[in-house]
C-alpha cells in the first residue's frame, strides 16, 4: 500500500466534524438538563416539624421534597430490639447508633428502597415496617431484613432546632 498523505481537505473535514459535534452537544445539553429539578423545586429543600405532641410508640409522617418522612418516637423495647441485632444478620449492615443519634427518635424517608412505595407502620416480621408492594420487611431501626429491597430506609440530614422542633434537610 502506498503511504497516504494527510491532505488539507482531510484536516478541514476532521476539524469541521469535531466542531460540529461539540456544537451539537452544547445545544443538546440544555434540552436534557431542563428536565432536572428546577430552582423552585430545589428551594423547597428543608422543612421544620413540631414533634411535641408525639408520644412514645407513635409515628408522625410529614412530606419533605414530595416524599413522606417517618418520625418515630421509639419505645425502650424497640430501641433494645434494634440495638441487639447482630451486624451479620443484616442485608445492609448499619448500626442503630448511627441511624438514630438520639435513640428515642428515628427519622427516615418513608420510602421503600425497592421501588419507592410507602411502607406501613407496625407491620411485618420484624415489628418495624412492611412494604405492601413487593413484601419488604424492615426492623425497628428501618433496616431491611427480608424481601427485595436492597438498602435500609434512608436517614435524611436533620437536626433538632430546639427540644420540640426537627428541621429536615
Amino acid at each position: 500500500m502506498s503511504e497516504k498523505k494527510t491532505k488539507r481537505r482531510d484536516f478541514l473535514f476532521t476539524a469541521t466534524t469535531a466542531v460540529g459535534a461539540v456544537g451539537a452537544a452544547a445545544v443538546v445539553w440544555p434540552m436534557i438538563d431542563q428536565m432536572n429539578p428546577d430552582a423552585s423545586v430545589k428551594a423547597l429543600a428543608s422543612t421544620e416539624v413540631d414533634v411535641s405532641a408525639l408520644t412514645p410508640g407513635n409515628t408522625l409522617t410529614v412530606l419533605w421534597r414530595g416524599k413522606p418522612v417517618f418520625i418515630r418516637r421509639r419505645t425502650q423495647e424497640e430501641i433494645d430490639e434494634a440495638r441487639s441485632v447482630k451486624m451479620e444478620d443484616l442485608i445492609h449492615p448499619e448500626k442503630d447508633e448511627d441511624r438514630a443519634k438520639n435513640p428515642e427518635w428515628l427519622v427516615m424517608l418513608g420510602v421503600c428502597t425497592h421501588l419507592g412505595c410507602v411502607p406501613l407502620n407496625d407491620k411485618g416480621d420484624y415489628n418495624g415496617w412492611f412494604c405492601p408492594c413487593h413484601g419488604s420487611h424492615y426492623d425497628t431501626s428501618g433496616r431491611i431484613r427480608k424481601g427485595p429491597a436492597p438498602w435500609n430506609m434512608e436517614v435524611p440530614k436533620y437536626e433538632f432546632v430546639n427540644a420540640d422542633t426537627i428541621k429536615i434537610g
Binding site: 423545586v41 421534597r65 412505595c117
Partner: peptide, 28 residues
C-alpha cells in the same frame, strides 16, 4: 413511582436518572 424507580436499579447513575425523570425528588 414504582415504574420510574426501576431505573434506580442501574448502578451508580440510577438515582440521578430517576431524579432527572421526575424533575424533582418524587413524582410530582
Amino acid at each position: 413511582t414504582v415504574i420510574t424507580n426501576l431505573f434506580s436499579a442501574i448502578p451508580l447513575v440510577g438515582e440521578g436518572i430517576v431524579t432527572w425523570l421526575w424533575g424533582g425528588y418524587s413524582v410530582d
